[in-house]
Amino acid sequence: MTIRVALVDDQSLVRSGFAMVLSVEDDIEVIGQAADGAEAVALIGKERPDVVLMDVQMPVMDGIEATRQIVDADLAKVIILTTFDRDDYLFAALQAGASGFLLKNADPDELVGAIHAVADGHALLAPEMTVKVIARLAVSENSGAGSASDGASAPGTPAQVQPPVDPLTARELEVLALLAEGMSNAEIASTLFVGEATVKTHVSHVLAKIGARDRVQAVVYAHRAGLTRPAG
Rank of each mutant, 00 (worst) to 15 (best):
I3M: 05
A6R: 08
S16T: 14
S16Y: 03
A19H: 09
A19I: 04
M20E: 13
L22Q: 10
S23M: 11
D26A: 15
I28T: 05
V30Q: 07
V30T: 11
V30I: 15
I31A: 10
Q33I: 06
A38P: 01
E47R: 15
E47P: 00
D50G: 10
V51T: 01
L53C: 14
L53V: 06
M54I: 04
V56K: 01
M58L: 06
M61D: 07
E65P: 01
E65M: 10
V71P: 00
D74A: 15
A76L: 10
T82M: 06
T83R: 05
R86W: 09
A92Q: 09
A93N: 08
A96L: 06
G97Q: 07
A98D: 07
S99P: 03
S99N: 13
G100K: 00
G100I: 01
F101S: 02
L103E: 06
N105T: 14
D107G: 10
P108E: 09
D109I: 07
E110S: 06
V112E: 04
G113N: 02
I115L: 12
H116G: 04
V118L: 12
D120Q: 12
G121L: 11
L124R: 02
A126R: 13
E128M: 09
E128K: 08
T130Y: 02
T130A: 15
K132V: 03
L137N: 13
G144W: 00
G144N: 06
A145N: 13
A145Y: 06
G146T: 00
S147D: 15
A148Q: 15
A154P: 02
P155Q: 04
T157F: 05
P158C: 08
Q160I: 10
Q160G: 01
R171I: 10
L173R: 12
A177C: 10
L178D: 03
A180R: 00
E181I: 03
G182Y: 09
S190P: 12
F193W: 10
G195R: 03
E196V: 12
A197Q: 11
T198P: 06
V199K: 02
K200W: 07
T201C: 05
V203C: 14
S204V: 05
H205V: 15
V206Y: 10
V206T: 02
G211L: 07
G211K: 02
G211W: 06
R213C: 09
V216F: 07
A218H: 03
V219A: 05
G226V: 03
G226C: 11
L227A: 11
L227Y: 08
G232K: 04
